[in-house]
Every structure is written in C-alpha cells, then in structure tokens.
C-alpha cells in the first residue's frame, strides 16, 4: 500500500511537470497566434506547418544561449530568483484536482497529487511565495529599472492578495471547506448549483485579482513598458529568463484551472463530459488572458492601487458581510 502510494505520487508529479512545462511552451505559441489574429497579422508561420515548430526553435535557443551573470549583481540571489518562480508555480499545482478520478487497468487514479484539506489556501499561499521571484530578480540585478519593476511588482502583488483572499472567503463560508474537491462536490448537481450564481461579485473580484496574481496585461506593471525595458527580467538571459517565462505561463494555466473549480462547477459529476467541460472552461479562461492582452492597454500604477483599495476591497468586504447575514438568518 505504502509503496504503491509512493510510486503513484511520483508518477503523478512527473506527469504534471512534463505536461505543464510543455503546455507553457505551447502557450507561448497560442499567445503569439491569437495576438496576431486579433491584430490582423499571421504570427509565427515559417518554422514548421503554421509555425507549430516555433516552440521547439525557441526552446533550442533558450537552452543553448549563454547564461550571463552580469558583474555587479548579487550572484546567488540573482541565480535562484527564476528557480523560485518556476518551482512555486508547480508546487501550487499539488493541490489542484485536474480531472475527476478515473479507473485505469482496474486501478483508481485520483488526478491530484495531495488532497490536503486546506487546498485553496495552500495554492494561494504558494502562488504568493512565487512573487519572490520577480522581487529578488529585480533587487539582485544592479539595474535601476529592474529595481523599480521589483518594487512595483511587490506593491501590486501584496495589494491584490488582499482581494483574492477576501473574495474567496464568501464561497468558502458557503461550502464550509477549503478543499477544491469539496468545492467541486458542492457544485456537482449541474449548472444551477454553480457558485457563480450565488456569488457573482466574488467571481468577478477573483477573476480581476487573477490578472494581478499572474501579472498579465491590464496589470502588467512588472515590465516597465513606458521605459521600453523588460522590468525585472532585463539582466537575465538564456534559460534563467526562460524559467521566469515557464513560471508565468504555468501560473496562468493553474489559475485557469482554479477559477472554474471554485466558481463554475469544476468537473461536475465526474463523468467524461464533466472532465471535458473542465478542460473547456480552463481553455476559455486561458484564452481570456490572451484576449484581454490584445484588447486593453496597461493601467497606470496609481489607477491600479485606487482600483484595489477604494473599489475592489470595500466590495469584497461588503460581499463577505452580506453572505454572512444571509447564511445566519
């Protein structure tokens, strides 16, 4: 029993690592294609059919490029920062149920690495640790723009963690559990049972905060676009820069799994249709990240802070209070 469990866990970890590392690469292809179509371009076309092998070409480039450590940086911190981003992104995946449980050759497989009973808290906490990557990368680089980007990134992340926490508090009160599997069971009765109908405010707030947590475009302040410089990643090259990239895309995929699991019924009753439904919802939320990048400019930092503290946080608090009153009486 113990050995079987150990082997199963190791296999699951390896499978998730491989699938999502590959997906992160393919995600960049999707992003370039979708942005291109929305801007009436073709995007990558030359490498392979429809530019599909562009991912492989980029991978070869990233892996073989020289890894430069500039002279004045704090070398150990500079080297470890991208690893933190990538590692924490994958650690957060440990508590996400990617599919309903299924039977393979007479052996029941639970597609979740660790069904801990504090799942969502663990996921958000570890994703919060992930922001140490950009922060340390920016601070360790001997570059003023990197430092500015790190400071701005830290301010955004800390502010929006408040929104994330407060917005999911109301659904957690309704479900009475922190495990994503319990969230799924609560909503397994069909579309009418989805939490989004009873908690629309929480859903929208969490969705907005997801953009800040992953650092995607309306809130992409960690890149200093107006200085035409890549923020904390300016001094990085080769695979270390690639690790930042993998971490960002893996985070996008994982948060795209978490939003449907929390609010939109997850995999439903656990049938094949439900599993496909979860994948479809995940694809929509991933697509929405790219869509909003094509459609919206970045907001100013002061607008972002104004939005967070004066609009979203009071809304989230009021939502929690109203939910509490409704549940009591």
């Amino acid at each position: 029993m113990e050995t079987a469990y150990l082997i199963e866990t190791v296999i699951k970890v390896v499978v998730i690592l491989l699938i999502f590392s590959a997906l992160a690469g393919i995600g960049t292809y999707f992003e370039r294609k979708i942005l291109a179509f929305m801007q009436r371009r073709l995007g990558p076309m030359n490498v392979g059919p429809y530019g599909l092998l562009q991912v492989a070409a980029d991978g070869v480039k990233l892996f073989t490029k020289e890894d430069i450590i500039p002279t004045n940086v704090v070398a150990p911190i500079f080297k470890i920062a991208p690893v933190i981003t990538a590692a924490t992104a994958f650690m957060a995946a440990a508590a996400i149920p990617f599919l309903p449980q299924f039977t393979l050759f007479g052996y029941t497989v639970h597609p979740i690495v660790a069904d801990i009973n504090i799942g969502i808290l663990y996921i958000l906490g570890i994703m919060g640790v992930g922001l140490y990557g950009p922060l340390l990368g920016g601070m360790a680089s001997a570059n003023k723009f990197s430092l500015l980007s790190a400071a701005r990134g830290a301010a955004v992340f800390i502010s929006y963690e408040v929104i994330t926490g407060l917005s999911i508090l109301a659904p957690i009160m309704m479900v009475g559990s922190l495990s994503l599997i319990d969230f799924n069971e609560y909503q397994s009765g069909g579309i009418g049972d989805w939490i989004v109908w009873s908690q629309p405010v929480a859903f929208v707030l969490f969705w907005i905060a997801a953009f800040a947590e992953t650092g995607r475009t309306p809130f992409h302040l960690i890149a200093n676009d107006h200085e035409i410089i890549d923020g904390f990643g300016t001094e990085y090259s080769g695979m270390r820069w690639g690790l930042f990239f993998i971490g960002e895309y893996a985070n996008m995929f994982f948060i795209s799994f978490v939003i449907p699991l929390l609010f939109l019924g997850g995999y439903g009753d656990g049938s094949i249709l439900g599993a496909l439904g979860l994948l479809a919802k995940m694809s929509f939320f991933f697509f929405f990240f790219l869509w909003s990048r094509a459609a919206w400019p970045d907001v100013r930092p002061d607008q972002l802070m104004w939005l967070c503290w004066k609009v979203l946080m009071p809304l989230a608090v009021i939502n929690v209070v109203i939910t509490g009153f409704v549940m009591m009486f």
Binding site: I116, I118, L121, Y122, G125, V129, L178
Partner: peptide, 10 residues
Amino acid sequence: ADFLGAIQIV
C-alpha cells in the same frame, strides 16, 4: 496541522 502550516507561509 495543515491549516497552521499554510497560514505560516501566507
């Protein structure tokens, strides 16, 4: 104590 562990991290 899973809850306290996660709180410690957060």
